[in-house]
């Protein structure tokens, strides 16, 4: 138990340091990129650009800007957007994340349940037609990029059949197309991964033992098979959940979902410095946290794993 707590504390410290490092690197890289938040097809006069730079503290040396930013960050303040005048970045991120997370959560549940079911079914019917069909499906799911899937779904269900709405999230039906699009890849990946590890596990002696004890096939598969086969899936789940929760730029753009992914890319294109920092730090935090949780989960699921 003590070693577990020690491990958690150590991991936590690493995580914090990682986020700090990402924030620092992003800050300096971002300032190296040419361009600025006040550029548009109609150029501003140099005097006005000067006034704007003053207002947002962009005239200071980068190192001073960095110091000022970090002090505010330590207090949990991500600042105000330059492009979306007057909007608090904390508010924007909170609002957008709720939207992305809603879509993401449904996607994750769908991908995990169906992915696992498919993987198990494929494993136990190895070589049969079902297995082959599932293999084709998962290969397709992993090979076809999501913008192709999204556009295909949009054209079939939105434009030709006209049975599903194509933009926004104003009703539950609006979730169907984006969730399907997003779920394709992880579903296929989980199914494929699980099929492999499951086949491996099903060959083990302890499965034969379990069967000879007279356990039902279901018990053998779930309790002994799945539990042992799932560890690699957990490894994959961490980054996958982080990635999906925080929103996919492509899918958000195609289905006009006002989520965090779009905001992230938009902030970079518009050189909205505080917004770039805010979204980067937030995304990094989610990513690092998921890895942190997965790390702890390993131990819970598989006591054989050495903590170090």
């Amino acid at each position: 138990m003590r070693s577990l707590i020690k491990h958690i504390v150590k991991r936590f410290a690493y995580s914090l340091f990682t986020i700090f490092l990402i924030a620092t690197i992003t800050f300096f890289l971002m300032n190296l990129v040419p361009g600025g938040p006040f550029l548009s097809e109609k150029n501003l006069s140099p005097q006005i650009t000067e006034v704007m730079n003053d207002k947002y503290g962009l005239n200071e040396p980068v190192i001073i800007q960095y110091k000022n930013y970090m002090i505010k960050l330590a207090q949990g303040d991500l600042g105000v957007s330059i492009i979306n005048k007057g909007r608090d970045i904390n508010d924007i991120i909170y609002e957008k994340f709720l939207i992305s997370a809603k879509v993401g959560f449904i996607t994750i549940v769908l991908a995990i349940t169906i992915g696992i079911a498919m993987g198990v079914v494929a494993a136990i019917s190895k070589g049969k037609l079902v297995d082959r069909l599932l293999t084709i499906f998962s290969t397709l799911g992993m090979a076809v990029p999501n913008f192709v899937i999204a556009t295909a779904l949009l054209i079939i269900f939105g434009v030709k059949l006209r049975i599903l709405p194509t933009y926004g999230l104003s009703s539950s039906a609006h979730f169907i197309l984006p969730v399907l699009t997003l779920a394709f890849y992880p579903m296929a990946y989980i199914a494929r991964l699980l099929r492999t590890t499951m086949l491996d596990v099903l060959d083990q002696d302890y499965i034969r033992t379990a069967r000879s004890k007279g356990l039902s096939e279901f018990q053998v598969l779930v309790k002994h098979g799945l539990r042992n086969a799932i560890t690699p899936i957990i490894t994959y789940l961490g980054p996958m959940i982080a990635y999906i929760l925080t929103g996919s730029f492509v899918v958000e753009k195609i289905f006009s979902i006002p989520g965090l992914g779009g905001e992230f890319i938009g902030s970079i294109n518009g050189r909205d410095y505080p917004m770039i920092m805010g979204t980067t730090i937030f995304l990094a935090t989610i990513m690092v946290s998921m890895n942190f949780i997965v790390d702890i989960l390993y131990k819970v699921i598989d006591p054989r794993i050495e903590l170090n």
Binding site: T151, L154, T166, Y167, G168, K253, I254, F255, S256, P258, G262
Partner: peptide, 8 residues
């Protein structure tokens, strides 16, 4: 409606 993708 505030969309970003011309095809959408």
């Amino acid at each position: 409606v505030l969309m970003t993708d011309a095809n959408a």
